[in-house]
Nucleic acid binder design. Sequence first.
DNA 1: CGTATACACAACCATATGGTTGTAGGTCAG
DNA 2: CTGACCTACAACCATATGGTTGTGTATACG
Lengths: 99, 99
Amino acid sequence: MFHALADATRRDIVRRTLDRSFSVSTLARGYPMSFAAVQKHVAVLERAGLVTKQRRGREHLVAGNPAALRTAHDALDQLELAWRDRVTRMDRLLATDDL
Amino acid sequence: MFHALADATRRDIVRRTLDRSFSVSTLARGYPMSFAAVQKHVAVLERAGLVTKQRRGREHLVAGNPAALRTAHDALDQLELAWRDRVTRMDRLLATDDL
DNA sequence: CGTATACACAACCATATGGTTGTAGGTCAG
DNA sequence: CTGACCTACAACCATATGGTTGTGTATACG
């Protein structure tokens, strides 16, 4: 999941498809690489659950998935939780004048 | 930055060092890999600004950097912003009974 | 029907990544 | 000073990654 977000092109695809749906080839035209490369990026994002694909005729519309972003968000919050514990403990330490 | 967070070992190191500082070798003992491997992970995290190192005698204490986490957090918020726009627009669309 | 479009997928390549071992530099204890 | 310990760094290896081109399949159009 973080790995899927670790590539700039993929982050851009997520950003654009959160705004509105795009077909894979329409997306591909926006990047300086082959269609196949973009299609692979979309596949990575889809496996990570960051986008969903919906077929419309011969096109596959790619839409960003806000719920997945929320997941990543929460994962970072989890990490920050540890940080707050640490600050709390430091505060306690300072308060007791142990230094 | 997301790349640095994309590895499970590195996320774990961040989690542990947000809690409190650890020397590199102490950290290394906690993982099923060589000291050098862990040391490389720490180097990656340090380059990404996710941890800082502070020397104490012959040990180098690794501490998580909450500010960097905040940065990642904000980046995700940026992405979610686009999503809220989308929802707003959909709401407007539904409100006008264009469907 | 044939042709063009949109997508999926495989094969391939260069480079990045995560791991290893080995070597070398500081620092502490005796 | 010597030896043990902590760290840094380079060389090396297997695999993953991001890119390419080519092939196959489904859909739309004339």
